[in-house]
């Protein structure tokens, strides 16, 4: 979780992004049919498919303005460029960011490359083995041959058992 000052800087940016999204929603809603002739009857504005998105767009802008106001009051708009530059410079040494990016990338690879393109057991075993191996390192976990073998065994057995339960008990074929 972010601490107070950086959080307000983030709020400054996200609230502007949400205000833009609200504006986009209002513009998109205004392009939807508002008065339509259907079956000889004129349908009024209140039946328009754009009404609800337009209301949501207005509310999004109002609520985001509230967040923006708080962010500005707390000085969230000051020194944004400097903070962004510092953040960019720290990317190489930010261990938490590396671990988060690695986790998201591995799950993303399994979703977009593994599932549906490779055989289920191959994709799942590879995903489990690589992810478990990548996140194995910790102060109280020595990296031994036995540890790698254990991970390989789990990665091999787990997809087989889960696949069997899905197909046999829940009647769900594997991708």
């Amino acid at each position: 979780m972010s601490s107070e000052r950086p959080l307000r800087k983030a709020d400054f940016v996200t609230s502007i992004a949400f205000m833009l999204l609200g504006t986009v929603m209002i513009v998109a809603a205004s392009r939807m049919p508002w008065i339509v002739q259907s079956g000889g009857l004129q349908q009024d504005w209140y039946l328009s498919p754009g009404l609800f998105p337009a209301v949501l767009g207005v509310l999004l802008i109002l609520f985001s303005a509230n967040v923006l106001m708080h962010a500005v009051r707390a000085g969230g708009h000051r020194g944004l460029g400097q903070v962004a530059a510092q953040g960019l410079r720290a990317i190489g040494s930010n261990r938490d960011l590396h671990r988060m990016a690695a986790a998201a990338a591995l799950v993303g690879l399994y979703v977009f490359v593994g599932i549906g393109r490779f055989e289920y057991h191959v994709a799942s075993t590879t995903f489990l083995f690589v992810t478990m191996l990548a996140f194995h390192r910790a102060p109280d976990r020595p990296f031994t041959v036995w540890a790698v073998l254990k991970i390989a065994l789990i990665a091999l057995i787990a997809p087989a058992v889960i696949g069997y339960i899905f197909t046999e008990f829940f009647q769900v074929p594997m991708p």
Binding site: S124, F127, T131, M132, F135, R141, A158, P159
Partner: peptide, 11 residues
């Protein structure tokens, strides 16, 4: 450990 449980939850 979470590094065993969480990839399985993802799967």
């Amino acid at each position: 450990p979470p590094f065993i449980v969480l990839p399985m939850v993802a799967m």
